[in-house]
Amino acid sequence: MKILLVDDEIELISALAERLSFRGIDADWTDNGDQAIELARENDYEVAVLDVKMPGMSGLELREHLKAIKPEMRFVFLSGHGSEQDFREGSAKASSYLIKPINIDELIERVKNA
């Protein structure tokens, strides 16, 4: 399974990618929306895991760009707080929504069921 991780916290996303690799999930990662779009054009990801709040392009905006490139892509959102607004905007269309700090087993379950 190949997935894309996008979060502006590099130390978080790189460690997460390494842990997922130990569990048989091939995860590419980036800290910004523009590079995520490039990666999505060049690769076939089944699922994208996106931070809701990022500099420049938010996770919700990024989802729209990625869906235009790969309509079949599914999404899991990460959020620091899970504010009511985040939840309302994110959960309306997202496959899933997790609050940081995340449990990796729960993330894997959400990714597989997305």
């Binding site: 916290e9 130390e11 978080l12 620091g80 707080h81 940081k100 700090p101 990796i104």
Partner: peptide
């Protein structure tokens, strides 16, 4: 500030998990 702290905790959590792995 609390959003930033959530990110700090998330990074500590992921790297503690990585140490276990």
């Amino acid at each position: 500030a609390t959003h930033d702290l959530k990110n700090v905790l998330a990074i500590v959590n992921e790297n503690a998990g990585l140490l276990e792995d």
